[in-house]
């Protein structure tokens, strides 16, 4: 924080109620303006800071837009091959069972090329947190169809809209893993409004607290936007998310721990 006199004077009688957590580095995010990744990174790292577990946490970054997550997250991290984050996290957690381990993956990574690794990690009940960013598109490679792309949605590889009769249907990965006995806590959240951000952060906090219990996998989907890939300004992309994504991917808990 700045220490110049004017600032000090200005701050007198005021409390800082929101600031960048130390668990984020000073590196500027490379994400496009308005991209939900930044918010998701922030609430994840804020939670780690608030729980005081930064020194015990190992993160796994995916291939996709968030491939450089480790530039921003000020903790030990591994960069996994495309789709393999859950397998990498399994390797880490199995040899460091007392550490908090999370993966941070997009829809292409988690729900297409990494489907097997994801489902089997959850099915084994790996004690990890899987953060799944679903923006229904491949952002990094330039806006191609993702497994989660909505029906009729236009992408660079579905230029006439996703025609489900020959290209298949959007995959609800979160619904799928909620059925697995290894899943302990499965929820779908968003980060497009202040309230949604508060709820999503609470979900991430729950997930880390559950990880302490060693009861199984926690899976937090975050329905997010992709202004560049959707070819909209950030504000419109959030409206589009609300009108099109949320009816198909409704927010809320899909599996919560039974009360003891």
């Amino acid at each position: 924080m700045s220490t110049d006199v004017l600032t000090q004077e200005l701050q007198q009688g005021f409390d800082c109620v929101y600031e960048k957590p130390d668990t984020l580095t000073d590196t500027r995010f490379h994400y496009c303006p308005g991209c939900g990744h930044g918010v998701a990174h922030r609430i994840l790292m804020e939670t780690i800071q608030e729980l005081g577990i930064a020194e015990q946490t190992v993160g796994v970054a995916p291939v996709g837009c968030s491939v450089f997550a480790y530039h921003y997250m000020n903790i030990d991290m591994q960069e996994a091959a495309h789709g393999r984050a859950c397998a990498v996290a399994t390797g880490v957690k199995r040899v460091l069972p007392d550490r908090y381990v999370f993966t941070y993956q997009g829809d292409g990574d988690l729900a297409a090329i990494g489907t097997a690794e994801t489902i089997h990690a959850v099915n084994r009940g790996e004690n990890i947190l899987i953060v799944f960013i679903n923006n229904a598109i491949y952002g990094m490679t330039g806006g191609q169809m993702a497994p989660t792309t909505l029906a009729k949605m236009v992408t660079s590889t579905t230029p006439y809209g996703r025609e489900t009769d020959w290209i298949g249907f959007p995959l609800k990965m979160t619904d799928l893993v909620a059925h697995l006995p290894g899943a302990y806590y499965v929820t779908r959240q968003a980060v497009h409004t202040p309230n949604a951000v508060r709820k999503a952060k609470k979900a991430i906090r729950n997930a880390f607290e559950y990880q302490k219990l060693n009861k199984g996998t926690c899976f937090v989907e975050i329905v997010s936007n992709c202004p560049s890939g959707w070819k909209m300004n950030p504000s419109d992309s959030n409206k589009w998310l609300e009108e099109n994504m949320l009816p198909f991917y409704p927010l809320g808990d899909l599996k919560v721990p039974e009360k003891a």
């Binding site: 996994a80 393999r84 996290a89 390797g91």
Partner: peptide, 21 residues
């Protein structure tokens, strides 16, 4: 520790994670 993975693709990536740790 031993873990039977779901595929060789998974097992080599578990190796990556555990070796990295």
């Amino acid at each position: 520790k031993v873990l039977q993975a779901e595929s060789e693709v998974a097992s080599i990536n578990m190796i990556y994670g555990a070796a990295g740790a």
